[in-house]
Design a protein around this nucleic acid. Structure first.
Length: 216
DNA sequence: GTCCAGGGCCTAC
DNA sequence: GTAGGCCATGGA
């Protein structure tokens, strides 16, 4: 199918989450909360210039300095405070981000969720894109598209929707990454202005459509 | 000028 | 346990 092919080449690419290091992805996961990625890029650029784009550096930095650097990403006081606390905690308890990621998948998710500033989506983003664990990321686009195209409840809770995917797909990080990336790209280009439905061209564009159980 | 983005926390019923 | 308020910049 032509639509399938165009979708694959337009949206389907690996390592969709930008970031050269695990630290950068971890920090980006906090910064991107409820914000556009272009704003996050400005903040990351500032951090990089100040050699503060690592958990170790942030743990030693004054919160007021971090505030100035992450300001473009919005909610900058909250995010600076959380980055500082998260970094300090990770350094003192695990020695490094790698140390934290050394935990088993279940323990890691539980630990991340116990930290202030890390909710379900951020935890899963960190685990999938920084730690490479096979955990499916649910975001606003995923929820919206699943509701409109596959009829899942509009206010389905996070873990239930996550389970829909994880029970239907092989536990493959590369697949999960690509899949999530496609939801975001599809959502960005269609979801807001042209609500998805069974007749929306976007329905046919999702190359994974057939793999997801319907009727939930 | 208005709306809202790749959320999450805190507080009040 | 859950609805509502709050955090805040920048682009459309």
């Amino acid at each position: 199918m032509k639509l399938y092919g165009s979708m694959g080449s337009r949206f389907g690419f690996l390592n969709w989450w930008p970031g050269d290091t695990k630290d950068e992805i971890f920090i980006g996961a906090i910064l991107t909360q409820q914000t556009t990625w272009t704003n996050v890029e400005k903040a990351i650029s500032n951090l990089k210039k100040s050699k503060a784009l690592s958990v170790r550096a942030l743990s030693r930095m004054e919160t007021s300095i971090i505030e100035k650097l992450v300001r473009p990403s919005g909610y900058y006081r909250q995010k600076a405070k959380r980055l500082k606390l998260l970094s300090s905690t990770i350094m003192s308890e695990y020695g490094s981000l790698e140390g934290l990621f050394g935990l088993g998948q279940e323990a890691l998710r539980k630990t991340l969720l116990g930290m202030k500033g890390i909710g379900p989506e951020t935890a899963d983003s960190i685990m999938l894109y920084a730690a490479g664990k096979p955990t499916f990321v649910i975001d606003a686009y995923t929820k919206r598209i699943m509701y409109r195209v596959f009829g899942t409840p509009a206010n389905i809770d996070y873990d239930s929707l996550k389970e829909v995917f994880e029970s239907a797909l092989p536990k493959n990080p590369a697949l999960y990454k690509d899949f999530h990336a496609q939801f975001v790209e599809l959502g960005k280009s269609h979801c807001k202005t042209k609500p998805l439905c069974n007749h929306c061209p976007a329905f046919g564009l999702c190359k994974y459509a057939g793999q997801v159980p319907t009727g939930h």
